[in-house]
Design a protein around this nucleic acid. Structure first.
Length: 520
DNA sequence: TGGTCGGTTGTACCA
DNA sequence: TTGGTACAACCGACC
């Protein structure tokens, strides 16, 4: 029997390495490629850069599908409301999609799958967002997520390399498949503009990272040609404040699934072959494994995006301070390095990993003592590569709430940037107000004599804010508060080690701080 | 994937 | 020549 099939795009906005889409084409007479703008995921709070990236990715997908005599159908609403109507309207017999491990997605997909069953629709899903089947990694580690990178590496070593990516469907694959198209459909299911999504595009900057599979593959090709660079890539050696990105900026494409992580992995393997090359955790392969690491944690650890009821997260008495949170979010902390990074984040939707470290440390354990959950929300809205699992994992890491425990390693909002940008050119690019300050004051303009401030045309306290905290003092105090939080954690764990751990494995010796380990 | 401080060592320069 | 000085580079200890 030939099927009428919906392939549901959510992430995985690509044709290459899309096994669920290929499954849709098997015994298929009619194909409906569908994307649903879900108010839970695509609300107006999501940053406009991210929305633009999504719209770009959808346009690109539609364009590629049209080359296969198909198209993309874009709908709006809650998937559980949308699908029953589509099942009836199109007499659907099969639904395919890519497996998604986020808690919201799992609940959503469970509801949709059960609706599909009620309508006599077969459901097929495939794993292609991650390198591995995440549940398989957990199984291999005796049912617990590996809580160190090293452990994850050992597990995946046993599993062997990730599956090879499969090619995109061709016209040959589409020979017996039709996508019904009519003028009525064109209007009804077209891709909305940003204005239609009630977004004001006048605040948009230049589109540095356009969404879409074609751009993703172009960008991948461009970087893979640089064999020497790829082979010697070590993440910690790249600069957080170069004027153009010092890394690939493929992450937004992997996040939306415009680029398959497995395709990226195997392209790197090709480049590495026969050459001396860097290795995980610092290499580019290593970066993909970090993604895998946090995905595995996010699946195996309950309430992974929260402090409370999250068994790996140290409980910290974070302050509530709306003024300071707003100053951080809106790039007016008075520390040019921090404010420049937050400006780049808002304008461009991407900042370097180490820049994320600097601002995350500043918001949490370093200076403002504000919960990492607040930072998580800001990154979620503003980062093009904002990914539920990676965002939660990295915020816990940086705030020394989980995974990373050397809380006395505090980034200086003044000294850190100087290592790779002595002149402060990065600050001048994103905070042009400060561009006339001489290098000796650019990281701490409040120290400049009045005459220098006047000459620079920028008076601290009037044109640019005073620093909202005194870093030297506050960071010392915060280290002490962190020490107390760790001491409390240890004594709580001693009282009921297993119960407090929540997940059954004992991965931190109760009563002891984890040994200083180096993960790269 | 830290920062700071104090101490040591190495080195360039010069009287 | 050589001793003095300044300073950079590095190390370990500590937070």
């Amino acid at each position: 029997m030939a099927h009428v099939c919906i392939h549901w795009f959510r992430k995985g906005l690509r044709l290459h390495d899309n096994p669920a889409l290929m499954a849709a084409l098997t015994d298929c007479k009619e194909l409906y490629p569908v994307f649903i703008l879900d108010p839970y995921l695509h609300h107006t709070k999501v940053g406009i850069n991210r929305q633009r990236f999504l719209i770009g990715a959808l346009k690109d997908l539609d364009c590629s599908l049209r080359k296969l005599n198909s198209r993309l159908f874009v709908l709006r609403g809650k998937p559980e409301d949308v699908f029953p109507k589509l099942f009836n309207r199109w007499n659907v017999t099969k639904l395919t999609y890519e497996y998604d491990t986020e808690p919201y997605s799992l609940r959503r997909d469970e509801r949709v799958a059960s609706l599909a069953k009620e309508h006599g629709v077969d459901v097929i899903y495939k794993i292609s967002h991650t390198l591995y089947n995440i549940e398989r990694i957990i199984e291999e580690n005796n049912g617990k997520p590996p809580l160190t990178y090293k452990r994850l590496q050992a597990i995946v070593q046993n599993l062997g390399p990730p599956k090879k990516p499969i090619p995109a469907p061709t016209l040959e694959n589409m020979r017996d498949v039709k996508t019904p198209r009519s003028q009525k459909y064109e209007d009804e299911y077209r891709i909305p503009t940003l204005e239609e999504l009630q977004l004001d595009s006048q605040f948009l900057g230049e589109e540095l990272f356009p969404g879409g599979e074609q751009e993703a593959l172009r960008r991948l090709d461009e970087h893979m040609k640089r064999t020497g660079w790829v082979c010697s890539f070590e993440k910690p050696q790249t600069s957080p404040n170069s004027l153009s990105p010092s890394t690939t900026v493929l992450s937004p494409y992997v996040t939306f699934g415009c680029l398959s992580a497995r395709t990226f992995w195997w392209r790197l393997t090709e480049v590495y072959r026969g050459r001396k090359h860097s290795a995980p955790p610092v290499s580019l392969h290593g970066q993909l494994l970090w993604r895998e690491f946090f995905y595995t944690c996010s699946v195996g650890i309950p309430n992974f995006n929260k402090m409370n009821d999250n068994p790996v997260c140290t409980k910290v008495d974070w302050d509530t301070n709306q003024q300071n949170l707003a100053a951080w979010r809106e790039a007016r902390t008075g520390f040019p390095f921090i404010d420049a990074i937050m400006t780049q984040l808002r304008q461009e939707g991407w900042i370097h990993h180490l820049a994320r470290h600097a601002v995350a440390c500043f918001l949490t354990r370093g200076d403002l003592w504000i919960s990492w959950e607040e930072g998580q929300k800001v990154f979620e809205d503003l980062l093009l590569d904002g990914d539920w699992a990676l965002n939660a994992g990295n915020w816990q890491w940086l705030s020394a709430s989980a995974f990373f425990h050397q809380f006395f390693r505090v980034y200086s909002p003044i000294a850190f940037g100087k290592k790779t940008d002595k002149n402060g050119d990065y600050i001048k690019k994103y905070l042009p107000l400060l561009k006339k300050f001489p290098p000796e004051y650019i990281y701490e303009p409040w120290k400049a004599p009045r005459s220098v401030q006047q000459a620079a045309g920028c008076i601290v306290g009037k044109d640019y804010p005073h620093p909202i905290v005194q870093h030297e003092q506050i960071s010392k105090k915060n280290i002490q508060r962190m020490k107390e939080a760790y001491a409390k954690r240890s004594s709580d764990n001693n009282e009921s080690p297993i119960k407090k751990q929540g997940i059954t494995g004992i991965y931190i010796s109760p009563g002891l701080l984890p040994p200083p380990y180096k993960t790269w």
